[in-house]
């Protein structure tokens, strides 16, 4: 399993972090590190999540994250195309 990093822009609201980590948890992927901060726009937060998983897992996770209402953008910081 390779290490991969996902960067997200999400709504800066209560409960959003829960929805995102819930997706990881449901598939049984541990979050190795998580960084959240408010952006210059107070309605938006930036999240950086590091985890472990194979290529197809990474793509699946990114696509599932994109379906969340509170998620505005997702970038997989790797060479895999999603």
């Amino acid at each position: 399993m390779e290490k991969f990093t996902v960067e997200l822009l999400v709504s800066n609201r209560y409960g959003v972090l829960n929805r995102i980590t819930g997706l990881y948890a449901r598939r049984g992927y541990n979050i190795d590190s998580l960084f959240v901060n408010e952006t210059e726009n107070p309605e938006v937060s930036r999240m950086t999540i590091c985890s472990h998983g194979d290529g197809d897992v990474q793509v699946q996770l990114v696509r599932q994250l994109r379906k969340l209402y509170d998620v505005r953008s997702v970038v997989l910081m790797a060479s895999v195309e999603c």
Binding site: D56, Q60, R63, Q64, R66, K67
Partner: peptide, 11 residues
């Protein structure tokens, strides 16, 4: 219509 269905169960 759902991008996440591609490759979820069958590639």
């Amino acid at each position: 219509i759902d991008m996440a269905e591609f490759g979820k169960n069958v590639n």
